[in-house]
């Protein structure tokens, strides 16, 4: 049973006024008070817009509020184009929100959807070690971290392989190893398992889950379309048209999705 996401509406203040309104009443009764729990990711009323061709602001994110406690893995669900990746980039600091406030624990790590965008060095171990350049580590410590991270994603035997000889799934695992090696407090993961088969998918999600639950300090936000991964999560957000329309623990999200499916079938008389 996951710990709760939001604090009580009274304590949340303005945050509650926005996000509670969006929840559509799903899972609200399951939310517990977590004022005592450390929050790793917190966004309040986040909005993000881009300028369209006609100089008008095109909203991508609308009034999104979320919190992810430390030591938990949360998933971000939603249809294509609903703004999941944009929200993740805003949380990573790659995009500046138009409105709202944001607090994410550091160090944080971001894994892109396309591994070719993430992997920057020509060989496996050099790429995993790249992110460690910002820390002042000894070479032995770097080697140790790289080995442990590669082992966690089952890529230790490929440590000296050139990146271009790897498959898409293997590149994705290298990208994940790079994030794991940094031992960050926050992991922001954008559709990690898109290129992976079922076996690798399970290995990667277990590696992330272990990382999150090992010391209770790491929080992970995982964007996915694979609903079977929900069983490894502590909770989930569901987005539609740039808004977080609901959030809660896994059973409440599954109920919500089943309800949506039923409505869809009823709408089309299938």
């Amino acid at each position: 049973m996951p710990a709760a996401l939001f604090s009580s509406p009274a304590a949340a203040g303005a945050l509650a006024a926005s996000s509670w309104r969006c929840r559509l009443g799903v899972g609200g009764d399951r939310l517990l008070d977590t004022t005592a729990q450390a929050i790793s990711i917190e966004g309040r009323r986040l909005s993000f817009s881009v300028a369209s061709k006609h100089s008008a602001a095109l909203p991508i994110l609308k009034d999104c509020s979320l919190r992810v406690p430390a030591g938990q893995l949360w998933m971000l669900l939603g249809l294509n184009g609903c703004g999941k990746s944009t929200l993740l980039k805003v949380l990573a600091g790659l995009l500046k929100p138009t409105e709202g406030t944001l607090r994410v624990n550091k160090p944080k790590s971001f894994v892109f959807q396309n591994p070719d965008h993430q992997v920057v060095m020509p060989t496996v171990e050099a790429d995993v070690a790249f992110g460690l350049g910002k820390f002042h580590l000894t070479p032995d410590e770097v080697k140790s971290r790289v080995s442990v991270a590669l082992d966690a994603v089952g890529m230790l035997k490929y440590s000296q392989r050139p990146i271009q000889t790897l498959s898409g799934g293997q590149k994705q695992r290298v990208a994940i190893a790079g994030a794991l090696a940094e031992a960050c407090k926050v992991l922001l993961l954008d559709e990690l398992t898109t290129f992976l088969d079922e076996y690798d998918q399970l290995g990667v999600i277990k590696a992330v889950k272990n990382c999150v639950s090992s010391n209770g300090e790491v929080a992970a936000l995982w964007v996915t379309h694979r609903l079977e991964e929900l069983k490894y999560a502590d909770g989930a957000f569901y987005m539609e048209d740039g808004r977080i329309v609901t959030h809660g623990d896994v059973p409440s999200i599954i109920d919500f999705l089943k309800q949506k499916q039923a409505n869809y079938i009823e709408h089309f008389n299938l």
Binding site: F110, A126, A129, G133, K134, G178
Partner: peptide, 16 residues
């Protein structure tokens, strides 16, 4: 996103 800030002297490249 991986911590590089444009300065090679502050971001060490580990050649293992």
């Amino acid at each position: 996103a991986r911590g590089f800030r444009g300065d090679s002297s502050t971001h060490k490249i580990y050649l293992l």
